[in-house]
Design a binder for these strands. Structure first.
Lengths: 205, 205
DNA sequence: TCATCTTCTTAAACCATCGTTACAAGCGAG
DNA sequence: CTCGCTTGTAACGATGGTTTAAGAAGATGA
C-alpha cells in the first residue's frame, strides 16, 4: 500500500499546475522550484518536498521540464480526462455557474441540473434541462456522475447533500453557507463567501 | 502587545458563529462545546481551546450562553457593523454576486462596481452604477471601502489587485483563478472553483 | 578531454505549529 | 453536601515547514 499523501499537499498541486500550464502556454520549456515558487508565493523547498512525495520529476542542475511536470501533475490529479458535474440549485449563483466557461475549458462539464422550483423545471440552462429534485436520485445514478456543485439555500443543504450521496455522488463543491456533516469518504470543498469575508474583517479592526 | 492569534483559529470562528446564530434563531439559550462541535464536525476540545484564546466565555457545569457568545464572536470578528464592498468585474459571476442577498443580510453592502467593458459602464447592477476601471482609484479612495471582490479574468487579476491596493483596499476576495502576489498586510481569500475541483478529483481516481 | 565550478535536486534533520488527551476546578441540581 | 456535568489549560503527540548536507548534471576553461 502506498503511504497516504497529506491533504494539504494535494491542495497545493492545482496551484503548481496552474502556474506550470501558464508557463507552457508561454513557451517556457524548463523551470526550477525557485522560479515556480516565486511565481506563486511558495517556498522552493516546500515545492520540492511536495513533488518528492509523488516521485522524482526534476534533474539536478537543470530543474524541471515544464511539459513533463504538467503531464505528471495532470495525471496525479486525474485532470487529464473529462469530468461530469451535477448542479443542484439554479438560483442566481447556480445560473452563473451553469454558464461559466471556465469549467468546460478545464474539462468539467455540467451534465445535469436540478431545482425544486416548478417554474424552472423543464427549462434549459446552458446545455442542460433543469429537473425537479424528485428525479435526482435516478438521473444521477444513471449518469454515473461523481461530483456535485451545491448552490441551494443553507436550510436545504444538509438534506440535499445526503440525497446526493445516496445517488452515487462522492465529492461536493458546496456554495451553501452551511457546514455539511457527511461520511469520511465524501470529499467536500467550501466556497461560501460570507465565511471568507468574516475571516477577513477580523484583521480590518 | 497582545499575543497574536493563529490565522487558522480565526478562520474557524465564522463557522462557530454561523452555527450559534442558527441556535439563537431557534430559541436555544445555552449550549456546550460538545453540542456545538457535533453540529459542525469539530472536536469539543478544539472549540474550547480556540475560544480560550480570546477570553473566558463559558460557565463550568453549564456551558455557554448562546446570545452572549454570539455577541462576543461578532465583536471579535468585527461583524457587528456594516461593511462596504467593491465589486470589480461584472461578468456572469460578478452579476450573480451583485444580486446575491446573502451579503446584505450579513451586513456586507456593495457600494461600487467596476468593469472595463464600455458597453457596461453607466448601467446599473443591483443598486450601484458600473464605472470604468479608469475611475477606480478615485472612487474607491472617496468611498473609504476596505474590501474588494475580484471577479475579473485571470490575466487581469494581478494588475487590478495592485490598483485596488493603491486605492486603499486592504482585503480581497479573489474569484479569479490566479494566485495573487501582494504585500503581507493585505488579506486575500481564494474562491476559485477550478482549484477546488482539481483538489477533489485527486481522490476520485 | 578533464578538472572545476555552479546550479538545483533529493533527503535527512531539525524546529514550529496544530490538535488531542487528560485533568483540576467550578457551577448547579437535588 | 455531594454528584454529575462542563469549562479552561497544561502536557503530550502528530503533523507540517524550513534548514542543511550531500550528490548529480551541465557549463566553463585550460
Amino acid at each position: 500500500m502506498e503511504k497516504s499523501i497529506p491533504d494539504i499537499v494535494v491542495g497545493r498541486l492545482p496551484r503548481y499546475l496552474r502556474s506550470l500550464e501558464y508557463m507552457l502556454k508561454n513557451g517556457i520549456k524548463t523551470t526550477s522550484s525557485q522560479e515556480l515558487g516565486e511565481s506563486i508565493g511558495i517556498s522552493a523547498a516546500q515545492i520540492r518536498k511536495d513533488l518528492s512525495q509523488f516521485g522524482e520529476f526534476g534533474k539536478q542542475g537543470t530543474g524541471y521540464s515544464v511539459r513533463y511536470l504538467v503531464d505528471q501533475l495532470q495525471s496525479i490529479l486525474h485532470v487529464n480526462q473529462s469530468w461530469d458535474l451535477v448542479l443542484v440549485g439554479v438560483g442566481d449563483l447556480g445560473t452563473a455557474l451553469a454558464t461559466y466557461q471556465g469549467f468546460v475549458n478545464r474539462g468539467f462539464h455540467i451534465v445535469l441540473a436540478f431545482d425544486n422550483d416548478p417554474a424552472k423545471t423543464g427549462k434549459k440552462i446552458g446545455d442542460v434541462t433543469i429537473h425537479g429534485m424528485d428525479q435526482m436520485e435516478a438521473k444521477i445514478a444513471e449518469s454515473g456522475a461523481k461530483i456535485a456543485m451545491l448552490s441551494v439555500p443553507a436550510a436545504a443543504a444538509q438534506e440535499v447533500a445526503e440525497n446526493l450521496i445516496k445517488s452515487g455522488i462522492r465529492a461536493i463543491l458546496n456554495y451553501a453557507p452551511m457546514q455539511l456533516i457527511l461520511p469520511r469518504d465524501i470529499h467536500v470543498e467550501y466556497l461560501d463567501p460570507i465565511t471568507k469575508l468574516q475571516h477577513m474583517t477580523y484583521y480590518l479592526g
